[in-house]
């Protein structure tokens, strides 16, 4: 059963300079117990989509339901079913971790005793019990995010929205956050998460929807998307620019290697995986071509974008006023 269903969502931010179609006809459905990752660069419309689905923002056109309830008409009923953890840890810095969770629990209409118990339970689960009675402004970035996620879970929501849950975290905190999210998923949570990192969507989501300029331009599992992009590739940076052509011949006799003169970088699809890399290295070695760098590279969000839209992932601040007025150059995909 689809817990989230959206049809033709349109949201236009009007400003003096220009109108920005932050959502330009978005259809979505998320089945119960699954994880959908919305993948896209800043300004693609991911946050706007989350804000519409969590009743924070009214769409101009289209409709969306959560468990059959309309997000605009039955907003209050929808709010009882959802938990939201936004891009910035929205916690009260002047309250302790425990007080924050108690407050959000009470506002979720839990009884004061239930809210207290639930707060203690979540503080333990998210490894915050030592800091529970410290004011949240003393927390590290990772701790704030964990507290924010705990706040989203306080009312035992059926459905969880995580808007860029790891943006701005250091690598270690990011892995910690992934663990916490994975636990939720194992326990059967239905989850919609947004991210700028293919790696993150890959690690957490069952299915990925790629968002660009307010539209969903591709959807599938991580493997399906990577196949669309062409899977892994081998990259070689040749030391001597004069040998670039020769090296390209060696690593891809069929002439499929792409050559970047400026960075002296050769890129070729690597259907053969690691073995193909070994072959390439051996051939280069036989010809005594010096290389500065060589490696097997997984597709990044940039590659996915390039393959799907023909333009690179553009980065623009995703605020309501300035959401990515990118030009429509991506029709050639």
């Amino acid at each position: 059963m689809a817990v989230i269903e959206a049809e033709g969502l349109v949201k236009v931010y009007r400003s003096r300079k220009s109108d920005v179609r932050a959502l330009d006809g978005v259809d979505l459905d998320v089945q119960e117990g699954t994880v959908l990752g919305l993948l896209g660069p800043n300004g693609a419309g991911k946050t706007t989509a989350v804000r519409v689905l969590t009743t924070l923002l009214r769409a101009d056109e289209g409709r969306a339901t959560i468990a059959g309830l309309d997000v605009a008409r039955d907003a209050q009923a929808v709010r009882r079913l959802i938990g939201l953890s936004g891009q910035y840890a929205a916690i009260d810095e002047n309250l302790t971790g425990r007080e924050n969770l108690w407050m959000f629990g009470r506002l979720y209409q839990l009884g004061t005793h239930d809210a207290k118990e639930r707060a203690t339970e979540l503080l333990t689960r998210f490894d915050l019990e030592k800091a529970a009675d410290r004011v949240a402004k003393t927390y590290s970035g990772g701790m704030r995010r964990r507290l924010d996620l705990a706040a989203a879970l306080i009312g035992r929501p059926k459905l969880l929205f995580l808007d860029e849950p790891t943006t701005g975290l250091d690598p270690r905190s990011r892995l910690g956050m992934w663990d916490v999210i994975r636990t939720q998923v194992r326990e059967g949570a239905t989850l919609l998460l947004t991210t700028q990192y293919l790696e993150e969507a890959d690690a957490l989501a069952d299915e990925i929807a790629v968002v660009d300029q307010g539209k969903i331009i591709a959807r599938g599992t991580a493997d399906e998307l990577k196949t669309q992009v062409g899977g892994e590739r081998i990259e070689v940076v040749v030391h001597d620019r004069d040998l670039l052509e020769r090296a390209a011949q060696l690593i891809a006799p069929d002439g499929s290697a792409s050559i970047d003169e400026h960075t002296r970088r050769l890129t070729v699809a690597a259907e053969g995986g690691a073995q193909q890399l070994v072959d390439v290295v051996l051939r280069l070695g036989e010809e005594q071509i010096r290389v500065d760098d060589v490696g097997l590279r997984r597709p990044t969000l940039d590659d996915v974008f390039l393959a799907l839209t023909g333009h690179a992932a553009e980065t623009a601040p995703e605020s309501e006023e300035t959401a990515a007025p990118t030009t429509a150059e991506g029709e050639s995909a």
Binding site: R51, T54, T55, L56, Q76, A77, R79, R80, I82, L84, G86, Q87, Y88, A89, A90, I91, D92, F104, L107, Y108, Q109, A151, G155
Partner: peptide
């Protein structure tokens, strides 16, 4: 973002 959080609660 606290106002948003409040607005997302029932």
């Amino acid at each position: 973002g606290l106002i948003d959080r409040f607005r997302s609660l029932p």
